[in-house]
Amino acid sequence: MDINTIHRSAKARFRGACRVCPVCNGTICAGEVPGMGGLGTGAAFRHNIQALAECRLNLRTVHSVKKPDLACRILGLDLALPVIGAAIGGIALNMNGAMAEAEYTAAIISGCRQAGTIGMTGDGPVPVVFDAGLDAIGREDGWGIPVIKPRDTDKIVELAKQAAAAGAPAFGMDIDAAALVNMTNAGQPVGPKTIQELAYIKNHTPIPFIVKGIMTPDDAEACWQAGVDAIVVSNHGGRALDHTPGTAEVLPYVAEAVKGKMTVLVDGGIRSGTDVLKMLALGADAVLLGRPLAIAAVGGGADGVAFVLNKYKAELSAAMILTGTAGLSDVPVEILW
């Protein structure tokens, strides 16, 4: 298996829903929602890519770091690398039937486990999206994290308890889907949450609670006040609100507000192991990987997902050696130029 074979296969199966461009930067697919594009002008998607591109690394080779340690511990989970498979729900509904929902979630969850990390599963307007994720997690002995849309709080609690019963070590809510029209049109309204609602969810669920879609320090502090265990700095891959900044732009400010109080994750425009290291230097504990793993799953199944994750792992290791970074517990911001 190689990356070109994965990409050729994925391109054929997507049938235009994703063009599998040589450079995945949101330019050609702008406005293609459903699909893989960014909302509206696609600016938010492009800003994710641009913000990371503007971060530069200091090349350092006079040091003793020869075998960097890529292992990390996130929410009590020991991972071989600081990269988690992001939740992309509705692959069959939104991507020209490129893959059945059950097949896709199984590829993400199993492929992440093969590579020594963990994957997330999604939620959507039809029950099969969430249920397929739970089934995949159950088949891997609970090794996966379901992410729930920002539904009514009691419904979130109900689904989170189902996740716990399936053995999941944590659950998430992608609060950045608060204006998702297809959920409301399907009779399942979504919306923002107050601190009190976040606290209610946290206090009525038995496993760690992750809130994805945080882009400002005050929202991060609100999550901390509510008792949330982790946040994901995310603009929903540029698919929630047009013209937001890139996640790498806001991450340092969010991390400064809550680092050490809670786990800080980030997604958005990460296309290499070098990008992973940049995000860690900007304040993240680990990253979520979305579109590259979706392409890997559609083009190569679980083995494709594991292949791409191992590629990122090798790139991250090389970047750590060439910046003198020994481990991931505290990546110094000084590696950035």
Rank of each mutant, 00 (worst) to 15 (best):
Pro34Phe: 09
Ile270Cys: 03
Asp2Leu: 12
Ala319Cys: 04
Ala51Thr: 07
Thr27Ile: 13
Phe130Met: 11
Asn94Ile: 13
Gly42Leu: 11
Leu81Trp: 05
Gly324His: 07
Leu180Arg: 12
Glu54Val: 00
Met183Asn: 14
Arg8Thr: 08
Asp229Leu: 11
Met262Asp: 06
Thr153Lys: 14
Gln162Lys: 15
Cys72Gln: 05
Glu158Gly: 05
Ile3Gln: 08
Asp303Ala: 15
Gly273His: 09
Gly138Tyr: 10
His204Ser: 08
Leu241Asp: 01
Glu32Thr: 15
Gly138Cys: 07
Ile118Val: 10
Ala297Glu: 02
Pro217Tyr: 09
Ile335Phe: 03
Asp131His: 13
Val211Lys: 00
His236Val: 07
Leu93Ile: 15
Val65Glu: 06
Ile195Thr: 13
Ser329Thr: 15
Lys66Met: 07
Val258Leu: 10
His7Glu: 10
Val128His: 07
Ala165Cys: 04
Pro192Tyr: 14
Glu249Thr: 15
Arg151Gly: 01
Asn4Ser: 13
Gly42Arg: 07
Val331Ala: 01
Leu328Tyr: 08
Ser110Phe: 01
Gly85His: 02
Met262Asn: 04
Ser234Ala: 13
Val128Ala: 10
Pro245Val: 10
Tyr200Ser: 05
Met95Asp: 11
Gly144Met: 05
Ala80Thr: 09
Ser64Thr: 14
Pro332Thr: 07
Asp69Lys: 11
Arg73Pro: 01
Thr184Val: 13
Asn58Trp: 12
Val308Gln: 01
Gly269Ser: 07
Leu241Val: 13
Ser272Ile: 08
Thr5Asn: 09
Gly300Cys: 03
Gly122Ala: 02
Val331Lys: 02
Ala226Ile: 08
Glu315Gly: 09
Gly301Ser: 05
Asn203Ile: 04
Ile3Ser: 06
Cys18Gln: 04
